[in-house]
Amino acid sequence: MKDLNLVAEKGPNEALTTKKRWNMKRNWPLHVMLIPAVLLAIVFQYVPMAGIIIAFQDFKPWLGFFESEWVGLENFRYLFLYPDVDQVIWNTLIIAVFKIVAGLIAPLTFAVLLNEVRLMAFKRVTQTLVYLPHFLSWVILGGILLDILSPQGGMVNKLVVALGGEPIFFLGDGNWFRFTLIVSDVWKEFGFGTIVFLASLAGINPALYEAAEVDGANRFKQTLHITLPALMPITIVVMTLSLGNILNAGFDQVFNLYNPLVYDKGDIIDTFVYRLGILNGKMSFATTVGLFKSAVGTVLIIVSYRLAYKLANYRVF
């Protein structure tokens, strides 16, 4: 309180400097609190960003950052010449796009159907069951899928045979592998994805439905003309935000399911970088591929955040 009195007695300029000093005196603990976070961000985020210079070097671990030879943009030229890169980028795009589209339609449909359920107990049990796979890791699910998709009498193939088909080698045939990736990803995430849609559904004004009822609209027409339009804004948000994931085809999933048989159709940028950099020791080239992905990814994220704000007035930060 003494400080405040001082401010009142002095002129406007002096008041400002006093206020600044007062601000510092009261706020220094805030700066102290941020020290650990800033240090961790510098060491584990910004230092690796500086490590990107090895994309412009022919990095040799035993020579280090300073002794390794500079090669300029040689690695980037190589990026467009290396035979597998095109295929890997194409695989990433196609798998990611299918996952994004299916991962949007499935939860939306499920939420609309779940909204028609009026037995509350049934609704709760359903929600509990479908949210669960989201929390299990791809290691666990990978182990389970290897077991149930096995061509030698796995559960799913037993069903296929019972329906009169030939056993399918889901994880050993390129096209079936992509199909398995997309379906299993939708299976894991569709339940959790319904949460945002259910929240929007709960916000629809019931008077709209009552009015439609009076006008003689049946439930299908009500869904078409009230429910779906009401879900448009959140759908646009989810769609635009997923744009930032177009180069993320799901490292955890692919890594836990793939094998050399399906590298041609199932290898994605992240798994390619891992094999190249960590297993084969081509650290510079792997970093170049990673940098290419991060750079495109960052631009896409910023564009998608902007779009979400422009189209649906949604702010991420």
Partner: peptide, 14 residues
């Protein structure tokens, strides 16, 4: 740090 990262290899070297 959410928007951009150094990637796998530099983090591994670190």
């Amino acid at each position: 740090t959410i928007l951009f990262s150094g990637g796998l290899i530099p983090s591994y070297i670190l």
